[in-house]
Amino acid sequence: MQWAGSRGLRTVVGVASVALMAGLVAACGGGSSGSASDTVYFGVSGPKTGPSAEYGRLWQQGFDLALDQINAAGGINGKKVALKWEDSQSDPKQTVPIATKFVGDKSIIAELGDFSSPASIAASPVYNRGKLVQYGFTNSSTEFTKGGDYSWSPSITLDVIEKVNAEWVRAKAKKVSVVYLETDWGKQAFQFFQQFAKEQGIEIAYSSPILPDSQDFRPVLIKGRDANPDAFVHLGYGPDGALVVKQLRDVGFNGPFFGGQNTPQFIDLAGSAAEGDIVNGVFSPADTTPKVQDFVTKFRAKFTTDPGDFNVYAYDAVNILVKAAKYGGATRDGVLKGLREIKDFDGIGLNTFAFDQQTRRPDGVKPIELVLQNGKFVPAGSK
């Protein structure tokens, strides 16, 4: 039920050393690069194919709507804003050469991505040595922004996510079974959940890692069911979450489920098995706030569907980097200056904030509790 990540999160041996070597090559990229043309470019490292391609599709919708509005309003000081995409499949082995390419492309003033935290972390040395802002807008690992002064993220971190997750679980259960992705990200999520579950007095009767690419989780789920939990907690993503909840119902567990993600893919794949599911998120189309309803109306008009969290993450990310570039200048140094000095960033999924200059993340941002009702995620407690 986590805020961001990828099924392809397994640590790749040797990636870090490759990144360091690539970073040495990329260091000559310089910090003041910018385009002399009539177009300002951001690089996007993200999944367009592979297991996480659905997230890239959702990103693209958010990017497209943002760029429509930004360019209709004059772009950045009269220059059009555009993206240069590279398909990483959210694979750490691919994000490193993509980072080297972006750092070497003087027209790119900042980078967006990658989707999973490990994929972004692998490339961080390249971006930091090349002095190109790496804006990991879906990277919830607490380790991501430790990569250096050029690694930034608005994402809610796993420690915050799992603290509120445990609070929500405690409202419905005293005893739970937990499955989590067998990845660095999944292990960190479980460690935090385990810590906060203990503080909340929640007994973890059974826990087990699950392989991201598995299609049959029933042997593990049967053991979790037989531990007689009040609820089941899944720490993972949309595709695996949908399989978990469907197979849970197949093996006879009908209690509360906390897991999956606020994505159309999860809702479609899980079907009625996920009714009542609780996830954390930053957005719901049911939010009556005027800025949210304006965004929802424009998104529906363009794509004939409701937006979800990952559309919002992408939409907000482009707008934040554009605001930084307008403030500091449409250069690499200018984007960094904007991120450091602007005190009133905001977005559809974010209240007004400034970046903490030590962590390079927003202060005080928390997820909201969403419940799946009649095929749509709505804020908990709404009718």
Rank of each mutant, 00 (worst) to 15 (best):
Gly43Met: 10
Val44Pro: 00
Ser45Lys: 10
Gly46Cys: 13
Gly46Leu: 12
Pro47Gly: 03
Pro47Lys: 01
Lys48Leu: 15
Lys48Glu: 13
Gly50Val: 08
Ser52Leu: 07
Tyr55Ala: 15
Arg57Cys: 06
Trp59Met: 06
Gln60Asp: 14
Gln61Ala: 12
Gln61Pro: 01
Gly62Pro: 08
Gly62Asp: 05
Gly62Glu: 04
Leu67Val: 09
Asp68Asn: 15
Gly75Met: 00
Gly75Tyr: 01
Gly75Asp: 04
Ile76Gly: 04
Asn77Ser: 11
Gly78Leu: 14
Gly78Val: 14
Lys79Arg: 11
Lys80Phe: 01
Lys80Asn: 10
Ala82Asn: 06
Leu83Val: 09
Trp85Ala: 03
Asp87Pro: 03
Ser88His: 10
Ser90Glu: 05
Lys93Thr: 12
Lys93Tyr: 15
Val96Glu: 00
Val96Trp: 02
Val96Ile: 08
Pro97Lys: 11
Ile98Ser: 01
Ala99Asn: 14
Thr100Lys: 15
Thr100Met: 03
Lys101His: 06
Lys101Ile: 06
Phe102Thr: 06
Val103Arg: 11
Val103Leu: 04
Ile109Trp: 07
Ala110Gln: 04
Glu111Lys: 07
Glu111Asn: 08
Ser120Ile: 00
Ile121Gly: 02
Ala123Asp: 01
Pro125Met: 02
Val126Asp: 04
Tyr127Val: 06
Tyr127Gly: 00
Asn128Lys: 00
Gly130Lys: 10
Gly130Cys: 03
Leu132Pro: 05
Gln134Tyr: 01
Tyr135Val: 01
Gly136Leu: 07
Phe137Asn: 01
Asn139Lys: 02
Ser140Ile: 10
Ser141Asn: 13
Thr142Phe: 03
Lys146Trp: 07
Lys146Pro: 14
Gly147Arg: 02
Asp149Ile: 06
Tyr150Thr: 07
Ser151Ala: 14
Trp152Cys: 04
Ser153Tyr: 03
Ser153Asp: 05
Pro154Glu: 02
Pro154Trp: 02
Pro154Phe: 08
Pro154Val: 03
Ser155Lys: 05
Ile156Lys: 08
Asp159Trp: 04
Asp159His: 02
Asp159Gln: 13
Val160Ser: 09
Ile161Pro: 06
Glu162Cys: 13
Val164Thr: 13
Asn165Arg: 06
Asn165Glu: 12
Asn165Gly: 10
